Simulated assay, not measured.
Amino acid sequence: MSGPSGRPTRAPRPGAGPLRVLQYGVHDTGYPRNVRVRAHLEGRLGASVVVAPRSRAAGRLRRAIEDVRSLVRGARRADVVLLSEFRLSHAPLAWLVARLQGAALVVDGFVGLHETAVDDWRRVSPASPAALRFRVLDAAAVRCADLYLIDTEPRAAEIVRRHGPSATVVPLAVGAPTWATRQPPAPPHDALRVLYYGGYIPLHGVDLVVDALTLIGTRRRVEVVLVGDGPARRAVEARVRRAGLGDRCTFVDAVPEGELLAHIARADVVLGVFGSSAKARGVVANKVWQGLACGRTVVTQRSSALDDVRCAAGGLLVQTEPASASSIADALVGAPLAHQAESPRDVAERLESVVQRSYDRFTDHLSALGPRRVHS
């Protein structure tokens, strides 16, 4: 039996055990993306998922050897090799090992190499050899996959347009973790409390938020808490001081994910993304899902990727015009306080339904690959 790339995959065998999946290259076993994928495979398909985390050995050569060993050993007993996010550079190796073992290869392209280094972090010049190398590796990851995962329809369409892959590209929604579905009560207060959290990457457009605060002026009393660290944090702090916004903005160091709920509980508004990159126009960020699931108003840049989310979230989702500080300012001036807003208690359930529909499509496409024991 052959998969979409024309290579052999294991045919079903009568009486065989559960689907066996090797999740390779996991950088953090607690990262929400790979946790949800793993839970779906185990819960919906009854799969046996073995995690082969990245080696933490001291030397680069030793890490590479240990990674290859864990991949080869795990693939011997796998029907599906699932290459996790942040590991696209290993796609050719994963393809080779999966092919030799007759397993299907599923690649999670949630975090592209070029978009991260060039567009998000801007650490690499777009015209540099390194940028070209990242483009080639991204393209190779798409070409190697039997099934390629991404997070939204616009990003899936862009991958198909750019690479024309033979593999099926499946949007797999990010969704909110369990802790973000508790809808914390908001204590009464007067000023609008706005929350940003993240790594100050260009994708988030924090500079545009600072410009919006300047435009608000005396129209409304707004207090902003910015949680997180990153190379651009000091520049943002300096920008806040120059704008005379020091009394409105509080900077807090990065906190564990489990502590985010306490910050969201004190907020009226959670900020999404306002960057100018192609990814910013096509992504639905973690913080958007989390803020909405907690029953908070989320202000973020307009995107067709938000269509399904908008239907589920209703008035809690406020979209601003791209690259417009004045649009952000108007959204904040008009945002309700959390304890006064009508926050539908079932919004988290509706959002989860959106996520589950995308995972159902994932199950259907995985079944169509024809590995040894894929069933629902």
Rank of each mutant, 00 (worst) to 15 (best):
S2E: 15
S2N: 15
P12S: 13
P14Y: 06
A16N: 13
A16G: 05
L19Y: 03
Y24N: 00
D28C: 04
Y31A: 08
R33C: 02
R38W: 04
L41P: 01
E42V: 00
G43I: 02
G43D: 11
A47E: 07
A52V: 02
R63G: 11
E66A: 12
D67R: 01
D67W: 05
R73L: 12
R76V: 10
R77C: 12
V81Q: 00
L82F: 00
L83V: 01
L83T: 04
S84I: 06
E85Q: 14
F86S: 04
F86T: 00
S89Q: 10
A98M: 14
R99L: 01
Q101V: 09
Q101M: 08
L105R: 07
L105V: 01
L105H: 08
V106F: 00
V107Q: 08
D108I: 00
D108P: 10
G109I: 07
L113Q: 02
E115S: 08
P129M: 00
A131D: 11
A131S: 14
L132F: 06
R133S: 04
V136I: 12
D138E: 03
R143D: 07
L147Y: 01
L149D: 00
T152Q: 10
E153F: 10
R155M: 11
V169L: 06
P171K: 04
V174H: 02
T178L: 11
T181P: 05
R182K: 08
P185H: 14
P188I: 15
A191S: 14
L192C: 13
L192Y: 10
L192G: 10
L195I: 07
L195S: 05
Y196W: 14
Y197E: 05
L208Y: 13
I216A: 06
R219P: 00
R221M: 14
E223L: 15
E223C: 03
V225T: 14
G228Y: 05
D229L: 09
A232H: 13
E237D: 08
R239M: 11
R241E: 12
A243R: 03
C249V: 15
V252Y: 03
E257N: 14
E257Y: 09
E259A: 12
L261R: 08
H263I: 14
K279L: 11
R281V: 12
G282W: 00
V284I: 15
V284T: 04
A285C: 12
K287W: 05
V288Y: 07
W289H: 02
L292K: 13
G295N: 05
R296H: 15
V298R: 01
V298Y: 00
V298L: 06
R302Q: 15
A305G: 08
D307K: 10
R310P: 03
A313T: 09
G314E: 13
G314W: 09
G315A: 10
V318C: 11
A325Q: 04
A325K: 11
L332Y: 03
V333I: 11
V333M: 10
V333K: 02
A335S: 09
H339F: 14
E342D: 06
S343C: 12
R345V: 13
D346V: 03
A348Y: 09
V355S: 07
R357Q: 14
D360P: 01
H365R: 15
R373W: 01
S376Q: 14
